Every structure is written in C-alpha cells, then in structure tokens.
Computed example of a mutant assay.
Amino acid sequence: MLELLQILIQIVQPFFVPICLVLAWGFLIVIVWSLGAAIQDTVRQTKKMHQIPCADCVFFTGNYHLKCPVQPKIALSEAAINCPDYSSRNLTSTR
C-alpha cells in the first residue's frame, strides 16, 4: 500500500507546481477583481449620496431629532434627492 502511494505521488508531483501557480494567480485575480468592484460600488454610492440636497436646504435644521420640519420622513435619505419642497439657502440669502 505504501509503495502504491509513493508511485502515485511521483506521478502527480510534476503537476503540483503548475497547478499551484494557476491557483495562486487565480486567487490574486479574484482579490483584485473584488477590490475593484468594491471601489466602484463605493464611488457610485458616494456620488448618489452627494445628490441629497438637504444640507443646503433652508428648511434643514441640523437637529438630530427633527432634521426637516417639512419632510421629516425623507430628510437626509435617497428619497430626498428630488424633494419637491427643497429651497436653497443661497437663493434665500440674496433676496
């Protein structure tokens, strides 16, 4: 039985290096691909979050308990991107 195992190891041994090389490169490619996808998702989410106009709205209070008295349910969320009650602080200060 031991001799059979030694013969089997000698037969498979030349294939270990190429198999390990392919597995190592495959693992490295998967890691780089995953990091790239994570960075891309983060950039996409950041761009979307920067579209939320609440911080520049005249109705935004900055209070933790009531951020917006007009639209409290959607304040500082993605639903506030096209808020119908948005009024810029810059426009009101020039009046």
Rank of each mutant, 00 (worst) to 15 (best):
S34M: 15
K67E: 12
H50Q: 12
L5K: 12
V12G: 02
S93G: 03
H65K: 12
A38K: 14
C20E: 07
V22Y: 00
T42A: 14
W33N: 08
S88I: 02
K67F: 12
G26L: 15
C68N: 12
P72M: 12
Q51M: 09
D56L: 06
L35H: 01
C68Q: 10
P72V: 11
C83I: 06
S88Q: 00
T92E: 15
I29M: 10
P18S: 08
V58D: 00
T61C: 07
L66C: 05
Q40F: 14
G26I: 15
T92S: 15
L2H: 05
R44T: 13
L91A: 08
Q6W: 13
S87D: 07
K47N: 13
N82D: 11
L76E: 15
A38P: 01
L91E: 03
K73M: 13
I52E: 02
W25G: 00
S87L: 06
S93C: 05
W25A: 04
A38W: 15
T61L: 02
P72E: 06
M1H: 07
C68W: 10
W33F: 12
T46E: 12
C83V: 13
F15G: 07
D85V: 02
I81T: 11
A55F: 01
P53V: 11
W25C: 04
P18L: 13
Q45G: 10
Q13E: 05
M1E: 14
K48M: 09
R89N: 15
P14Q: 04
Y86L: 10
F27A: 04
V30K: 13
S88R: 01
V30S: 08
L21Y: 03
Q13I: 02
T42C: 08
E3T: 05
S34Q: 13
C83Y: 15
K47P: 06
G36L: 15
S34N: 14
I11A: 15
G26N: 14
D56N: 09
V58W: 00
L4W: 00
I39N: 05
T61H: 01
G26V: 14
K73P: 02
M1T: 11
P53C: 08
I11D: 09
S93R: 05
I29T: 07
C83D: 06
V12T: 05
C68M: 15
D56Q: 03
I29L: 14
G26K: 13
E78L: 14
R95Y: 04
Q10V: 11
H65V: 07
G36D: 15
F59C: 05
A55D: 12
I31G: 01
W25T: 07
